[in-house]
Nucleic acid binder design. Structure first.
Lengths: 341, 341
DNA sequence: TGATTTATTTTACGCGCGTAAAATCAGTAT
DNA sequence: ATACTGATTTTACGCGCGTAAAATAAATCA
């Protein structure tokens, strides 16, 4: 507590009267040393306040407790939320998570993986950027480090894939929209960053054809990760030009829908499922913010908890030797009915 | 490229025919070795693809290039955005940022600082949790590591403080609201997580009294960081009970305002500054999402760029030896007029 | 009590790299 | 060609810690 600053384990070991390796054992598992030794170490610990350097610890460890978490874009609350969830699970399981964001940039994604190599992680939870990712770099990384892919799949790399069943997502919400009003048009980005978008479009087309309706896909221009603004601008143009063949719009994702809602507001169009409304808008993802749009957004939500739980458990299992063949798990979404559709 | 996996600098040095320390010098500054040596190293680099282990690099370095960034809550897009901005500036300046989120938990904040010590950072950019922070731990950390505090100040610790001028924020937007309609009520959390909230309340009171109006502060219950929900629930209650003495509400922050907008929607109250609206709502922060509420939120925005630039530059200056006495910089906000007020 | 087994601790070395000091080299003057 | 100077490279050691193998202490048994 009031002692001088201890700089390393050697000093602390001397102060406690125990050899350094024994102190090392103590920190890796307090029960691995004799009770009498443990008491002496803990007594010294109270007087001197020392903590081992985790990076030095991992330097020469056979298997570290480090886990890397890489998401495409931390400023997207969806990824922020799932990252937080995963971090929590790692900590609870006794691992030490380190978070990286690719910030939407493939070069930064590669750089994050490079940094991770230096960390000698026991495993990595990786949500790839998607279309923009450098597939060769990802594949190579997966070959070297036990990596679980989540959210967005890239071939059959890594230990396994866990994500949402985008076909089910869109099929389900399309079904709902068709049963409760006019069949939906599909509002998406022309060049989506994420392969999930293609699945959703295809699923929309399938669902519409199943109902005997003609699919109507509106693809708007726009690059990058500013989905709301892309949705707003594209929405304005589509609304002005009467591109939507029905009064119901299913957006490829919630952020796009949020932008479209703003466009509707700015054009004075009332959104909602009640009689007085001019248009229905629905999203997909269950974005943390979707509850607070006006009107609150009807959407189909990822099962955040299940995705992150399965992702984490699968990785832990692999790290702990309970290996299993590559497998893709795609979880169903839950329809969240709100006022927008 | 096609070479076998190089595991360490020694192997690479042998393959390139240069001694390891010289290779080490090269990686720390390619110009510090003879041109002929550099060519040989770079030739080997193309054939073998080797990257030094950054954590081992920093183990015995006199001064590392590591910079820690700690924010209270990454799932808040405000902090996500400012963190991204800071990360970028560090990279451009040749530093290596590592991002930590306290996830709203003081224990995690302390843990992040502990982890940072192991990283031997050249400096740290820290946005404290605020009220919940462990002041002793923060003070101790600042004594050991060059730390710049931003967003939310805690005494006069660290190298300096950079944030927004909350008095100016609230005075300015209160002024605007008073001039353009009924004077605002002030909507806030009873026990805010962040000391900035108190400044804002006080500034509101001062501004109102300056105008000769009676301040009306509505403090709603609610713990934690789910500000939108707190604003929504508190808003419902306040609206039902007629707590607001005027038709204009200034929220302590944008997230609270977003929740209040939802409450208004759910009660069928039209929000806006035009004739037909029943209520005006304004926020404070310039939250990334405020553009996309319906109606878009009138707010007073942090100067994200200036805050992060000054924060980063101040830290870099200190790291590079250009030290200066402790100083508090509080930047003015910019009023963003939208439809909500 | 002494020999034997077993649980702990120590010794000795390694992880991947930085860095001061010593050794070597290239370049210049004689 | 030789001695000398300054830049570059190499030698040698250290960073803070993990871990196998050796040494020691505790526990068990005859």
């Amino acid at each position: 507590m009031a002692g001088t600053k201890i700089q390393n384990m050697e000093e602390f070991a001397n102060l406690s009267g125990i050899s350094r390796p024994t102190v090392s054992k103590y920190f890796n598992d307090p029960d691995s040393v004799r009770a009498s030794t443990r008491v002496r170490i803990e007594a010294a610990l109270e007087r001197h306040e020392y903590r081992p350097n985790i990076y030095a610890m991992n330097q020469n460890r056979k298997l570290t407790k480090n886990i890397g978490i890489v998401v495409p874009l931390l400023s997207d609350p969806y990824f922020a939320e799932i990252a937080r969830n995963l971090e929590q699970r790692c900590i609870v399981a006794g691992y030490r998570p380190t978070l990286f964001s690719s910030h939407g940039d493939p070069a930064l994604e590669v750089q994050a993986l490079d940094t991770l190599r230096s960390l000698k992680p026991a495993g990595v939870l990786l949500a790839p950027l998607g279309r923009a990712s450098n597939p060769k770099a990802l594949k190579k990384f997966c070959a070297d480090v036990p990596t679980l892919i989540f959210d967005s799949s890239v071939d059959e790399i890594g230990l396994a894939f866990v994500g949402s069943d985008n076909f089910q997502f869109t099929a389900h919400i399309t079904d709902y929209l068709c049963r409760t009003g006019e069949p939906p048009c599909f509002f998406e980005m022309k060049t989506p960053a994420n392969p999930n978008a293609h699945r959703r479009r295809q699923s929309y087309i399938n669902a519409m054809e199943g109902f005997g309706y003609k699919p109507d896909v509106i693809s708007v221009e726009g690059e990058g990760w500013g989905f709301e603004e892309i949705g707003r601008l594209g929405g304005h143009e589509a609304l002005r030009n009467g591109c939507f063949s029905t009064n119901t719009i299913l957006c490829s994702n919630d952020r796009l829908a949020i932008g479209l809602l703003t466009a509707c507001y700015e054009q004075g169009m009332l959104v909602g499922r009640n009689a007085g409304s001019a248009i229905r808008v629905a999203g997909q993802d269950g974005h943390p913010h979707s509850r607070y749009t006006c009107p609150p957004l009807t959407t189909i939500s990822h099962d955040y908890d299940a995705v992150s739980q399965i992702a984490a458990e699968t990785l832990f299992a692999s790290i702990e030797g309970r290996i299993s063949p590559w497998k893709s798990t795609r979880l169903e979404g839950k329809l969240i009915l709100r006022d927008s559709a």
